[in-house]
Nucleic acid binder design. Structure first.
Lengths: 237, 237
DNA sequence: ACCTGAACACCGTTCAAGT
DNA sequence: ACCTGAACACCGTTCAAGT
């Protein structure tokens, strides 16, 4: 209640009258990065831009539009990222990792991508994956399903990362103690009923989300090659 | 708006005074199944149960607790589903498919599972997957990552299904016309820029979510065998 | 054309008061 | 112990009124 009075005298908004859709979206991204999805309210946005609601709704349809466009803005940089690798496998890993890192830097896009998985930006993503699968000689009929599988996996990880970020933002505990808590909690599970999870608890300490994500990508890549190999009957063992 | 007046006279609530946590959660599930996540408001719940807010908050911590417990209630039936198959692969497919079908029947759990992927019910899920991977001779070190990969994939699909259901609930168009619209939209994309997606448009008509999901599971299973077969990882970067 | 901000129609949640 | 429902503190969104 008292925080807005202080800022109006402290640093006057230089922007004289130039409100634009681009400025609104960039400001929304700043708020989202700073305080998470919960922090982006129309009220916070009007204060930050020192304007009224109508001004925002004049450039943006509604909050959904705002969230979607902000996500597009972040993702675009990833999809149109570095050029083609020599090895399609390496390119696929790089592409997936680019999205992973983007979600890691802006966890809120994980939620948004899961909410609207048919956005045009993801079409670009599909397209690039499809081409790389083509380069890997995945037959045309299987390409669509294979690309979808990989996208679903990436989006699943993205949503989980967003959930973890949300959880960590809620409590004051940092990442290390959070993992430690989970580990002790898992270790306390009945070993008879949860032998696997119980055994995994010890690994949780040195757990690396990014590395695990890459392992998953490699599993799918290996599976896709196997799938493609099946078309011509060829026994391997 | 007019539907609540009819029912109060049609069938009087037999429950004289027996409000319980279980009844609240089951009623919440009914509302969620009937009208989606948007339909579950505390107000709707009090009306349906013909009670006050305090009564509900006496049995349930908050709305998050309600949503989480409702999801648990639905998932529990899936995880403790049919017994062990002879073939671990078949068992894994069955387990994954069980979750897929549960999300298909109750799309709102897809959102909730993505929001809270560390729920105890998912630990049971992890445990069963881990044991089946063990049966498939996946080495102990790789088991944790492999199980995580599969869960992430399944959750990714779950979130997407929930998103699609939400989209379909919003508009009046049914599934067929929705797919047809998407197909024509994809077909209109510039073939030069989107050759893969453009080509995939024709396949969209006969698209089967459930079948595609299973293809993904099979890709994963094939990848697991390949992973397990190669003891030394390949060099990259 | 672009902006302002009071007002509206909702939320989830609380809490003094009842039985 | 269990329930009631007015009231509170928020939301996103609208819209008559200003420039």
């Amino acid at each position: 209640m008292e925080k807005k009075a202080a800022k109006s005298s402290a640093r006057a908004p230089r922007r004289t009258r130039g409100l634009s859709r681009e400025l609104i979206i960039q400001t929304a991204i700043e708020i989202l990065d700073g305080g998470g999805e919960k922090a982006l309210t129309l009220r916070a946005l009007t204060e930050r831009l020192s304007t009224g609601y109508g001004a925002i709704y004049h450039h943006v349809a509604d909050k959904g539009d705002l969230l979607a466009t902000a996500t597009d803005s972040v993702i675009t940089g990833v999809v149109s990222g570095p050029g083609a690798d020599a090895d399609p496998r390496a390119a696929l890993r790089r592409l997936a990792l680019g999205l992973f890192d983007a979600v890691d830097a802006h966890p809120w896009i994980g939620t948004e991508l899961s909410r609207q998985p048919w956005r045009p930006v993801l079409l670009d993503f599909y397209e690039r994956i499809g081409r790389l699968l083509e380069a890997l000689d995945v037959p045309q009929e299987a390409r669509f399903d294979a690309a979808g599988t990989l996208v679903n996996y990436v989006l699943g990880v993205a949503a989980q990362n967003a959930a973890h970020a949300r959880l960590r933002a809620g409590s004051t505990t940092d990442r290390e103690t959070f993992l430690a808590n989970a580990a002790t909690q898992w270790a306390q599970l009945a070993p008879r009923r949860y032998p696997i999870v119980h055994a995994a608890a010890s690994q949780l300490g040195e757990h690396d989300d990014r590395a695990q994500f890459l392992v998953g990508v490699d599993i799918f890549l290996a599976g896709i090659s196997a799938l493609h190999r099946q078309t011509s009957p060829e026994v391997l063992e």
